[in-house]
Design a protein around this nucleic acid. Structure first.
Lengths: 117, 117
DNA sequence: CCCATTTGCTTGGTAAACTTAGCATGCAGC
DNA sequence: GCTGCATGCTAAGTTTACCAAGCAAATGGG
């Protein structure tokens, strides 16, 4: 098991978030005040960004720094799979969703993770 | 105004905590798995430790990593829509989902709640 | 006193984070 | 066709986090 596997995960996570925000690599790099080649390398898992860079990226994407630290494995706690139930329960608790929409989302989610309840 | 001033604050903070715990520099260095010269330099504000080192130090001192990140100025911002974003962030953190699946789920979710970011 | 141990620090080096300049492709308008 | 601009990437360099070895001052026991 490569030590840098979780790094790659972090990079993919950043790239996904960037694309969800419809930002180009250069745009995000400017917002986060890092060079674009460096961001490129981070997203491909070649380097692990410092916490400050993570913080800037988080800010640029309007996400919490905690989210990124967690993804980067920088927050000590529990590698528990409570994350799985977190998706379903947060869906169930979201007041903006109708019951039908909740059901749809959970179905899609379970299809992805292969849960069979 | 020197850029390293807040760094010095962090170093002093670490040193204070270490002394409060009655640990020698070398002892804490061992616990945190860093070299003792390096810890010495960190405490005097010469270097800014990575988040991982901070995490190890926090653990060794039985303090929360958040405390240190905050002290290091790595955590300040953005405590906003915590509840409203619960669905999205839990999706993002779910290790069983591929980036593509996360993207799909979030798109569906945003479609439902009518978010436009 | 002497020796051992512990304290924090300096020096010199390596590896990795991060930058600047530039390359290649793709797409818009002319 | 070109031209210009945006995209992401590579190559080569600088900076800095971090380590191993070792040094000087203090402490304490014999």
């Amino acid at each position: 098991m490569n030590d840098r596997d979780h790094l790659k995960g972090l990079g993919e996570f950043i790239r996904t978030q960037r694309e969800l925000a419809n930002l180009s690599l250069r745009q995000l790099a400017d917002l986060a005040k890092v060079s674009n080649p460096y961001l490129s390398q981070v997203e491909r898992g070649l380097y692990k960004p410092s916490a400050e860079v993570l913080k800037q990226i988080a800010k640029a994407l309007h996400l919490s720094a905690e989210t990124f630290y967690h993804q980067a494995g920088l927050l000590d706690e529990d590698v528990r799979n409570e994350a799985a139930d977190a998706v379903e329960s947060s869906i169930k608790l979201d007041p903006r969703l109708t019951p039908e929409q909740k059901e749809t989302l959970i179905r899609v989610y379970r299809g992805f993770v292969g849960v069979d309840r």
